[in-house]
């Protein structure tokens, strides 16, 4: 399969990329790892006039700690997320989640910025990033601004990213040191994308009271979402099987869930509850305690 023709320009800096976006009058698309965009180009589901290659921009690389956040350059690949010692140490759930994206070859090319900006509802990083209170650093001709990821996803492949701007980095909140976290995915058997993916990050006081709870869910709905109803039912409580069941029963409340050929709406709602329950059990009731 061969894409329709387009012009190709390489941006050397973020300013360059913004200028090129401005000049294109909405006809251009940014190209990072290309692992969502190139398949779309080949199927001719999109036909931009120009591709602006941002993959060589040095300032979009790198992973560093800033206070209680980890700032990850937009071009960081899934493979780098998986193998970074800093990520492994501060938020192992992000490293583990990156590992279940696609396959080795896909992880070598796909980037964190592209994954979030693409807003595929079945992608794995949106839910994980929501559970880690992610913020996007976005740059446009007006300068830099920070956007909360919660609220960024508007619909399948639609985001709140302003037109002539790009995501320069993603920052994740380092969970409290006593918090535990997990990402559980039920992968579509053919595509490998998430039919459901639940990321839970939960912390407890020394006496066991839950003091931090984040649940991000992707795959089931039109957009990834934070399951606030679950989080609220956990906070301030002591872990028990009943609590987890009661909370997980609300896992689909905030989701805009529909059915498709592979999975009915009912099935997706069911998966959503079951995977949330399992995630919370793994964190709060590790084997032998219940």
């Amino acid at each position: 399969m061969i894409p329709t023709t387009f012009d190709y320009v390489r941006a050397d800096t973020v300013e360059d990329a913004i200028r090129l976006l401005q000049q294109s009058n909405g006809e251009a698309k940014l190209l990072a790892g290309g692992h969502s965009l190139i398949p779309l180009l080949k199927f001719r589901l999109t036909a931009p006039g120009t591709l602006i290659d941002i993959s060589k921009i040095g300032e979009l690389q790198g992973i560093r700690r800033e206070g209680n956040r980890l700032v990850v350059g937009a071009l960081t690949t899934h493979h780098q997320l998986h193998t970074s010692p800093l990520i492994r140490e501060t938020m192992p759930v992000l490293a583990d989640a990156a590992r279940v994206i696609g396959d080795l070859q896909v992880r070598h090319r796909g980037t964190v910025g592209g994954n979030l900006a693409h807003a595929d509802p079945a992608a794995d990083l949106p839910g994980v990033a929501l559970a880690l209170d992610a913020m996007l650093e976005v740059q446009s001709e007006d300068g830099k601004e920070l956007l909360e990821l919660d609220g960024f996803f508007l619909g399948p492949l639609v985001t709140a990213l302003p037109e002539t701007s790009l995501v320069t980095s993603v920052s994740f909140l380092i969970p409290p040191s006593d918090a535990k976290s997990v990402y559980l995915k039920y992968a579509h058997p053919a595509s490998g994308y998430a039919v459901v993916g639940v990321c839970a990050v939960v912390g407890t006081d020394p006496d066991g009271t839950i003091n931090h709870a984040r649940v991000g869910i992707n795959g089931v709905g039109d957009v990834a979402y934070r399951a606030i109803s679950v989080e609220e039912r956990l906070l301030g409580q002591r872990p028990s099987r009943e609590l987890i069941q009661q909370a997980a029963a609300h896992a689909a409340d905030e989701g805009d869930i529909g059915g498709d050929l592979f999975a009915s709406e009912e099935y997706r709602r069911h998966l959503c509850r079951v995977y949330t329950e399992r995630a919370l059990e793994q964190i709060l009731l590790p084997e032998g305690t219940a």
Binding site: Y8, L31, G34, H35, I38, P39, L51, D53, S55, H79, L104, Q105, V106, H108, R109
Partner: peptide, 15 residues
Amino acid sequence: VNGEAVKSCTMLAVQ
């Protein structure tokens, strides 16, 4: 590509 396995049907030659 630079030592890493990549699917060459999902990369442009210009990249």
